[in-house]
């Protein structure tokens, strides 16, 4: 359980009354800002090694850099998309150590040594993965911006069902989970497609699931 809001507020109020705050008041605003910048309390960057698509990539990143921006801006792997940057749309879905995550909700510094797979590691235009090919075949996209995230989730949804991980719509938790339309729709619902290709995405996933059964 998180502390009540008034507790947090009190902590901030306390900080504002310290000598540091008093120093702020005595100098012009710009100088105060410069002063605080010159004395960071600790390192503002961190060096991490991400194993991206099977390749070790050593990076020094701002501590605030998300995994998403580490991939897109540092490694120039722009296939992973930024739709909302707040974990609301799913466009940034990639896998970390084999599990799908919203990479915008995770900081790069949390992933030293982790295995990250992006859409670029799944297939290329001339050598598409079966899920990518199925998306093309069933027109499982229009504008294409949510598509890498949809494909990442789609591949994992099949695995998650086969691994027996239940979802909101799973009925009998003790039985083997069947790959049904309802299971796929439920598990894909974190990936928004505003072009509305859902029915075609479902067809693509179903085909891949059947072919790999």
């Amino acid at each position: 359980m998180s502390p009540p809001i008034d507790f947090k507020l009190r902590r901030r109020t306390l900080l504002a009354g310290t000598a540091a705050a008093a120093a702020f008041a005595s100098v012009p605003r710009g100088e105060a800002a410069a002063q605080t910048q010159s004395k960071p309390a600790g390192p503002e960057t961190t060096t991490v090694t991400l194993n991206v698509n099977g390749e070790a990539r050593k990076l020094t990143v701002d501590n605030r850099t998300t995994l998403l921006d580490a991939l897109r801006e540092h490694l120039k792997l722009t296939g992973t998309k930024k739709g909302c940057d707040h974990g609301q749309c799913g466009a940034c879905t990639c896998t970390v150590n084999g599990e799908r995550i919203n990479s915008c909700l995770s900081l790069a510094v949390m992933h030293d040594g982790d295995e990250v797979q992006t859409i670029e590691g799944i297939g290329q235009p001339e050598s598409m993965d079966p899920m990518q090919a199925a998306f093309v075949e069933h027109d499982g996209f229009q504008c294409g911006y949510c598509t890498p995230g949809q494909i990442q989730s789609a591949r994992k949804v099949i695995e998650e069902i086969r691994a027996g991980i239940p979802s909101h719509v799973t009925g009998d938790l003790t039985a083997e989970i069947a790959i049904t339309d309802a299971e796929i729709r439920e598990r894909m619902s974190g990936n928004i497609c505003r072009c509305g290709a859902y029915a075609n995405i479902l067809a693509a996933i179903t085909q891949v699931a059947e072919e790999s059964a």
Binding site: R72, K76, L77, T78, G79, T80, K81, K82, T118, I119, E120, I122, G123, Q124, P125, E126, M128, Q132, A133, F135, V136, E137, D139, F141, G144, Y145, T147, P148, I151
Partner: peptide
């Protein structure tokens, strides 16, 4: 006819406006 830009989009290789490296 399947989209001719499909393979680029499903592989994340179609560059959008913020990705013009």
């Amino acid at each position: 006819m399947q989209r001719i830009d499909g393979p680029l989009k499903v592989t994340g290789t179609a560059p959008y406006a913020y990705e013009r490296n």
